[in-house]
Design a protein around this nucleic acid. Structure first.
Lengths: 116, 116
DNA sequence: CGCAATACCTTGATCTTCTAGGTATATTAT
DNA sequence: ATAATATACCTAGAAGATCAAGGTATTGCG
């Protein structure tokens, strides 16, 4: 990642799930798509993504299937399950709480906004 | 933390430095202040904060001094150094890039906003 | 043929947080 | 007075996530 490793910790799963929200994808594609959508802020490593995908599949949050690419190479596509969509919703909700919390602290606290 | 440990990873240092931006504080106070400003979203553990403070001081980002509280207890106050202010600026900048990146990915990519 | 890109994977190091302790003083309740 | 709680500092080891660096195999290109 170009972004500090620490900051990335914890959002990898949410980002992977988010990508699959817009359609089935294979791992290699997800890394490229993540870079594209984030304007190259996120350059996830394969060593980060593949273990995430395996863990999610084991947990029943994703299913997978093989598909032959026009080029002949075999690709392993991942698909969100219903359970995966729920997990994504939870992760997004937690992200928003976190983001708001950081925002509040950076601005000096919620009361600085007249909320207290 | 109430927030997932993973999400917190990497922002602890920024949050600690941010608190000291508004004045010298001692560790125990920083934990309470962080909870207050974030509406209890951040409940940093002592085992998280103290090592952060020690590392920052060793690196020259903070200085410290002892002060007697009216109650009689001794408190160890931390103060931002110039180097610490610079680190904070860098951390904030990186946070903003990260936050924007996540926002872009969640919304389907920058081009979804008409930026591409 | 050799090299880069595609496409998958794993192991071990590193970093950060948390858990769960420990020490000591001051305040409050019994 | 004594016990319990709050204040205030600290550390060691476990757990979780990412990354670096490797490996395998196929395809396309010069």
């Amino acid at each position: 990642m170009r972004i500090d490793k620490g900051l990335m910790a914890g959002s990898g799963t949410m980002l992977a799930l988010t990508l699959l929200e817009s359609g089935d994808m294979y791992g290699y594609q997800m890394i490229e798509e993540l870079a594209r959508r984030s304007n190259d802020v996120f350059q996830m490593q394969e060593g980060t993504l593949y273990p995430i995908l395996h863990t999610l599949e084991k947990g029943g949050y994703l299913s997978s299937y093989q598909r032959q690419a026009p080029t002949g190479r075999t690709r392993k596509y991942y698909k969100l399950t219903r359970k995966g969509r729920q997990l994504l919703a939870d992760k997004k909700s937690e992200w928003e709480r976190f983001r708001q919390g950081v925002s509040d602290v950076l601005s000096g606290g919620a009361e600085a906004l007249g909320l207290a």
